[in-house]
Amino acid sequence: MSIDWEKAQERPDKTQKVEGRFLLDFRTKVNNLEQQVKVKDSKIERLTNELNETKEKLTETEKELSVTKEKLPSLKSELDEEKEKNQNLNSTKSELEGKLKTAEEKISELESEAESVKELEPKLNQIKEDLEQKERELEGVKKDLQQTISDKYIEIESLKNDFNEEIKENQLNIGDLKTDIEAKANEIEALKLKIKSLEEFIEEAKGAPQIIDEIRDVMVHKGFLSDKELEDLLEKHLNK
């Protein structure tokens, strides 16, 4: 017999006879429901956790959004700068492309000139051979000139040595002349002193003409008057 749910609802305290299979089936259903409830509870818990995490992420995202909004003017300014840089780069790119085109044209011209130069290679080789020949001739002339310079240098050194010897000899002669000049100068100085003494003596002896006569006699006979003779005459007459 199955459970009469209407009677159970009308008289919940009244006992009903129920077959075991219905109870087992009921227990199975209850277990299934409990499992479903557990699954749903687990799902609800998981969803709740996900919701909380989502809320936290939302909060963080809102904060990041706020920071991003604050940075937006700066980022916009940087974007404007990047745009300006991009424009400058485009301008530079255009200039470089123009220069590249000019360079390519120049390369084309140089290649054309290179072809022309290549055609001149035989003439250049001949000119090179002529230059090498001239260099060999110049080297010979250079060697001859170096030999001539060497010979002239030896000759100049010989003349220089002779000149130095002559200078040394002249210096010796000049030294001898200087010695003679110094001797003559000393002699002249002595004569000056002697003349000065005579002048002083003459001044003193103006009243004694006899002394002057004797000096004149000695000078006439001997041609000179020695210091000793002068002193003797002075002593002779001044001590009278």
Rank of each mutant, 00 (worst) to 15 (best):
K134D: 05
R136W: 13
S108I: 11
L110Y: 05
K160N: 06
E113L: 01
L145S: 01
T148D: 12
D162W: 01
Q133H: 15
L159G: 04
E155F: 01
S108E: 12
E113V: 09
K142D: 07
K101N: 11
I127K: 14
E111P: 08
Q126D: 08
E104C: 01
E115Y: 06
Q133V: 14
N125I: 06
E119L: 02
Q126T: 01
F163W: 11
K160P: 00
L110M: 09
K123H: 01
T148Q: 15
L100S: 07
Q146A: 13
E129N: 13
E113G: 02
F163V: 04
K101E: 04
L110F: 05
E109K: 12
E135Q: 15
E137Q: 15
I107S: 05
E139Q: 12
K134I: 04
E155Q: 01
E137H: 08
V141W: 12
E113H: 07
L159K: 11
I156R: 01
E121D: 07
S112G: 00
I154C: 09
R136H: 13
K134N: 14
S158A: 02
S158F: 10
E157V: 04
I156Q: 09
S108P: 07
E135D: 15
E139W: 10
A114P: 02
E157H: 00
K128S: 10
K118S: 13
D151G: 00
E105P: 02
D151R: 14
G140Q: 14
L145E: 01
E111N: 10
L124E: 00
G140I: 11
L124C: 00
L138W: 10
N161Y: 07
L138K: 03
L100H: 09
D130P: 07
A103I: 10
Q133M: 13
T148G: 09
Q147L: 14
E157K: 04
K160L: 09
I127C: 04
L145P: 01
K160Q: 02
Y153N: 13
S116R: 09
K118N: 11
L145W: 00
E137L: 05
E157T: 03
I107Q: 03
E109C: 05
T102D: 15
E157Q: 04
L110A: 06
R136K: 15
E132G: 05
V117P: 03
I127Y: 13
E115R: 04
E139R: 09
N161G: 07
L120A: 04
D144Y: 03
S116K: 15
D144V: 11
E155R: 04
I107T: 08
K143V: 15
